[in-house]
Design a protein around this nucleic acid. Structure first.
Lengths: 225, 225
DNA sequence: TTTAATTTGAACCGAACGGTTTAGTTTGTC
DNA sequence: GACAAACTAAACCGTTCGGTTCAAATTAAA
């Protein structure tokens, strides 16, 4: 069984990446700016965030901020790139390819539900949805580093288990996508729209279990190996 | 089988509601304002939209706008309330309770996938996700008028069919939510994050069929009545 | 035609916006 | 201790923001 404590890595606090204006500055103040920008952008959105507020949140003068980043748009894009990288790093190991089928699926489901309903997961999702019209590249980056990574990992895993005869799937892309979708049942929408807060471990477990059950009802092989 | 043409009603163009400052004005200019505000808010978001731009889009002077609505926040809330009402109106009849089981489910899935990936469905979803932190009530309203309505209708339908012995479901709330989630597989995320544009009727049909198949694999009764 | 109610464009307000500049201070290195 | 780099607060730029005001124009009923 998958313990909940090990899931924490996916929803850890934030320490921004090393991206700066001219490739890999010493980056002390630079990271401060990214951290402050991240905080303000996530809370207020792109238009709602002012550069003055970001500088203040970063504990940095506005002049310094503009020494590191050409303008507000660029700063926002850098923040989101770093955030997407973090996301894909935390998500790529979401499935244990060596575990028994049901255990592997349940573990992945637990981690996925946990992340998607976490404050961090919600923040990233919210701002990417909000700004992916104004910044189309950010939408793509989010998909590639989030749903895309998960789907790719799942497809890989599912194909292996199909060859082992543990699963019976025609379209592994569709199956992987359905697995991810099932993990969003019950909790995700309610969390996103403020109907519930952070779900309890029990609620997460139930949602994950039900997702796996429905998934296996469709794609699992009847009984014997 | 459900034809695609009858689905149009859910994704029709917009004619705003009759809400105004002091209960049901003659509402000619008032509707103009709401229509213009809707357009600009949907495209730019709350902070990105300026009142001058809204007035211009509405073909109305800023003074007139402020004669009808106390301030920008109130105008935004009114627009979103009207939009949520439209949504719940278009969505409440999404399932035909008298059709044979599989046909009813497939019809509902088709309509749901079509709406959720439509330009209108995406616009409403995007802005509600974006602004439901700044305006918590809007998040709730969206949930109640969208996912909430669908879930409620589905729960109702599923319970009926369980009593008829056509389905075998423990938790109808969970099952209804999973049905909705399955309809978002494959297309919804890609559409939201700009990986694809408007999906083809064929893609919608495939997604809906696969959703129903997985749903029935879990909750359908084996074979005979 | 008189009267009252709306609507209009335009000017206007103080505040905040993104972004720049400057003069001066801290910092790390040799 | 000297020196260059990085940083700072603060003033400043022009623009735009949400919101108000007002005289003139338009409308609609009487």
């Amino acid at each position: 069984m998958t313990s909940l404590t090990e899931l924490q890595s996916v929803t850890d606090p934030v320490t921004p990446a090393e991206t700066c204006l001219e490739g890999s500055d010493k980056g002390r103040k630079c990271d401060q700016v990214l951290a402050g920008a991240r905080r303000v952008f996530m809370e207020k959105g792109y238009e709602g965030a002012s550069v003055d507020e970001i500088a203040k949140a970063a504990g940095v003068s506005k002049a310094t901020l503009y020494n590191h980043f050409t303008d507000k748009r660029f700063l926002f894009i850098e923040v989101m790139k770093a955030e997407c990288d973090r996301q894909s790093e935390g998500i790529k190991d979401i499935i244990n390819p060596n575990a028994p089928l049901e255990e592997a699926l349940l573990g992945a489901a637990m981690r996925f539900v946990t992340f998607k309903t976490s404050t961090l997961g919600q923040e990233i999702f919210r701002i990417c949805v909000a700004e992916s019209m104004r910044f189309p590249d950010i939408g793509r980056s989010f998909y590639d580093s989030g749903p895309g990574v998960i789907t790719a990992c799942m497809v890989n895993f599912l194909e292996e288990r199909c060859q082992k005869g543990e699963l019976d799937i025609d379209d592994c892309e569709m199956a992987a996508s359905q697995f991810g979708a099932l993990c969003k049942a019950s909790l995700f929408d309610k969390r996103t729209f403020g109907v519930i807060g952070l779900p309890s471990a029990a609620d997460i477990a139930i949602t994950a279990e039900e997702a796996v059950r429905t998934f296996l009802a469709r794609y699992g092989v009847p009984k014997g190996a």
